[in-house]
Design a protein around this nucleic acid. Structure first.
Lengths: 344, 344
DNA sequence: GCGATGGGGGAAAGCGCTTTCCAGTACGGT
DNA sequence: ACCGTACTGGAAAGCGCTTTCCCCCATCGC
């Protein structure tokens, strides 16, 4: 067995008694008409030999592949894995393979992967790593992307509006603002925001949106505490907030964590501190991560259609190229649950 | 810009005033020694032209790629995405790219992807889709895999012991058994298992392990209810269980859901039915999904080192091929939390 | 001083496919 | 009966790279 090198197209052609050209045409179908009789012979030969085209050879000859690259910050984060799921589904429909690149948020890796995808002649690239305000890095990525585009590649980004490519923009600002308004409507008056690092764009946008909504509705500015954009970051931030609140008489009645993971961390911190979320303090998140829909108390959040976002990004990147940059907006929907009961 | 086709190796060679062969050797380093002076010239030329090797051409010439395929049932499921994360990390260390294939549990897709990976001449394939008892499909996959291996490919599976490849076997049986023992130790006496479809191997193994442990410790057989292997399946199964329990005087005091997602569904069902998990009824899961570590009450479960499993699978598949099939066992660790308090 | 040795460069043969270009055949029109 | 037109098969030229094989020249040993 081990010695039998895989059958090539010439093997098939020989077996079928036709030329290489005819074999290729018969198998690819569309190209040009081949007499049905010969076609069948070729198909039979291919079948008999267990022929499998060499995708690399095809890529060379055709100059294009069936591969799309997907860059995410961390595939084990449900936010990204849900997006990846939607994108993978869509890719499957188009007969495309997805190259998964886990950047871990490291700029060098991001650039390395971009280069690799370019070498592979990926048909398209979707960037879903979170955008940072790191101008130097962003511009390097932008350069890489531009030369990729010049080489005939296609690219799109998710929520990274600074990149010179088509983008699915997530209305972080609007969603957070709407959430603020709803919370005020429920009777809350003193808010704090648990944010990620301030150079993380998503975090900044959500913070700003919330602050704007809150300000417009109450005339006051929400406090805020920054930490990591993660479960533990949320826990730490919340712990600090609770400690501060003790001295300071004017404790907040409502906390907005800029993502669900942080919110869950905040929930844990409250539990530990003996603060009952809901009656004592309201907590809200953002994203509506599916796995987290069952935490108790149910977490008020802004639902993002993550799988659709993945699908949309692929559609965008596969669609007709257009001269100007396209932006496709996606809005979140506030989902109220028990963690923010109407304030009596 | 758009007209400038990407620089090729011959462009670099010409620019550097050397032959193709020398250019190739200078860039790949290892192959054979090139005079440092020429080497530098080539590097400079490559740099100047923004040369990017064409990975497809390299793959053709070398006969091997830098790509590994990963088949998962559903990347948006935290179980798989955590494994994928570990594997992607490891892949990055080896300079490999990961081809993500989302099978959705559909046998045809699985086969389609396997074929695609073969066409791509993927260096290795890791299968992490859950194994089913569907013999026909399993044997077809096995055939595909075998011919892939014959062609020089490498493959490994995660927890699919029926495939003729190296396998990371997860000790589902042992973990569930240990859990059963611990629960009995806490004072529980009447158990029920919430299982997935019985032809799903993971589910069956966990069920069997738990039943064995329970039987050995108490002499009685746990009841069980089957439904989907998902959050909603868990909720439904639990609801049914609670309804049955009402008629039947002898209600269970402890429920084992074969994965965390189902357990969370069960938690939701209990909440809805007014049953307080912990005091009224114990609930345990399996996997210890990170995102779920903060549900309340804290869910007793069997922790699986999912990221390590992904890493391990890649190591296995990249390691020296050996004649006999290798199995690498991974064991879970029981983690007791508030959902299963000691029974007073 | 001369042949043997070996280090390093270049020509060219692929790798497996697609696609252009050419040639042969059969058909239609006049 | 003759020429132009369609149609279809085959030869061969790449696609961009790696690698074998060959050759040249410098060094070494005797």
């Amino acid at each position: 067995m081990a010695g039998e090198r895989a059958a090539t197209l010439s093997d098939v052609a020989r077996e079928a008694g036709v030329s290489l050209a005819t074999a290729s045409r018969a198998l690819n179908g569309s190209d040009r008409v081949v007499r049905p009789e010969l076609q069948e012979k070729v198909l039979a030969a291919a079948n008999k030999l267990g022929y499998m085209p060499n995708a690399n050879a095809q890529a060379m000859a055709r100059g294009s592949t069936e591969t799309v690259g997907l860059l995410v910050k961390d595939i084990s984060d449900p936010y990204f894995s849900t997006i990846a799921g939607g994108l993978a589904d869509e890719a499957e429909k188009h007969g495309l393979l997805v190259m998964l690149c886990n950047t871990g948020g490291q700029p060098e890796r991001e650039q390395k992967f971009l280069a690799a995808l370019r070498r592979q002649r990926s048909r398209a690239i979707v960037l879903a790593g979170s955008d940072t305000a790191d101008v130097r890095h962003t511009s390097e990525v932008a350069d890489l992307l531009t030369s990729y585009l010049d080489g005939g590649g296609r690219a799109a980004a998710i929520s990274q509006p600074r990149l010179p490519v088509d983008t699915v923009v997530i209305d972080n600002h609007g969603g957070a603002k709407a959430l603020a308004e709803r919370l005020v409507g429920l009777g809350y008056r003193r808010a704090a925001v648990l944010t990620g690092p301030e150079d993380l764009l998503v975090s900044a946008e959500r913070h700003a949106g919330f602050a704007e909504g809150w300000r417009e509705a109450t005339g006051s500015e929400p406090a805020y505490v920054s930490d990591e954009f993660s479960r533990d970051g949320g826990r730490r931030a919340m712990t600090r907030l609770l400690e501060e609140g003790q001295d300071d008489g004017a404790a907040v009645d409502c906390v907005f964590a800029v993502n669900d993971l942080m919110a869950v961390g905040a929930l844990a911190a409250c539990r530990q501190a003996g603060v009952e979320v809901g009656p004592d303090l309201a907590v809200a998140g953002f994203d509506d991560i599916a796995t987290l829909r069952d935490v108790t108390p149910g977490l008020t959040t802004v639902r993002l259609p993550l799988a659709d976002i993945g699908r949309l990004a692929l559609e965008l990147v596969l669609g007709k190229p257009s001269a100007e940059l396209r932006k496709r907006s996606v809005h979140g929907e506030v989902v109220l649950r028990e963690s923010t009961p109407p304030r009596s």
